[in-house]
Design a protein around this nucleic acid. Structure first.
Ligand SMILES: [Mn+2]
Ligand SMILES: [Mn+2]
Ligand SMILES: [Zn+2]
Ligand SMILES: [Zn+2]
Lengths: 132, 132
DNA sequence: CACTTATTTAGAACCATTATAAACTACAGT
DNA sequence: ACTGTAGTTTATAATGGTTCTAAATAAGTG
């Protein structure tokens, strides 16, 4: 019910597939980071239901456009998404290839002194690479 | 001569191809950001000599491993490299898809308060996204 | 129910990157 | 200078994540 409204209010039809993806993405205690393939696996595990790869891509991109998901800038052959859409930062563990959230309070204020004419700042993201 | 020593000291044989790539990458006033395909184009323009795509990839990865190039973490279908290997940060212009350097002094000190057991910080990189 | 439009889907296409393996080259040892 | 070996280059194929296509299905509207 909750997700039906969320989708309707976003101009997205509340299909069976989208509702199942909402359950996996948003019906959790903690936020998390994922790739498309990891999400596809989670969907199958949690819902015992196969959603086509194209639909997973379509839905994730639709949710990203609506602001329900964020992409994480990182060097990887796969795109990483985040269900934590608050302003925050990341550790990236180079050995385990795992992302860990860094709250704004863990980083302190960042004051960008340089200005570019005619452009405004949309986001400021910090990536802290870790190794053993 | 300069580059021959640089390569020899790194355990890389100073081949014709590697020396030409060194000229394009390092014999410039300013540092710059590039993708593999942009670099391949620059090589052909500057040296009037075709180097195979595989060699461009091989060489860029060899130079990255030796610390002569850095990869820039960014969400793009292509990998971006940087000839500026100092610690620094980036603006990313979402409209023009262009990278602009942000010196450390433009950002101020970043104090990461959170610690992860058994891991140490290898790098701290800030990405500031810009829009019109 | 009838109709329109959105969505899902399997599969193909795309394209950056990596792997392969044969030809070539640098270079150390003789 | 010749030889042998390991390193390098190269064209080309393979890989794999992502996007595209177009036909089938489902949702919303009256
Ligand atoms: Mn996207
Ligand atoms: Mn690399
Ligand atoms: Zn996060
Ligand atoms: Zn830079």
């Amino acid at each position: 019910m909750e997700y039906i409204d969320k989708l309707r209010n976003s101009g997205l039809r509340p299909t069976k597939q989208r509702l199942q993806i909402c359950e996996v993405l948003f019906n959790t205690e903690k936020t998390f980071h994922f790739t498309i393939n990891e999400l596809k696996k989670r969907i199958k595990e949690k819902t015992h239901n196969k959603i086509s790869l194209a639909t997973v891509y379509n839905t994730v991109h639709a949710f990203e456009k609506k602001g329900y998901l964020k992409q994480i800038p990182i060097n990887s052959n796969q795109t990483y998404f985040d269900t934590n859409i608050t302003d925050h930062h990341h550790f990236y563990d180079l050995n385990d290839q795992k992302l860990i959230d860094l709250e704004n309070s863990d980083v302190g204020p960042i004051n960008i002194k340089k200005k570019i004419d005619g452009k405004r700042i949309k986001s400021v993201e910090v990536l802290v690479k870790l190794e053993d």
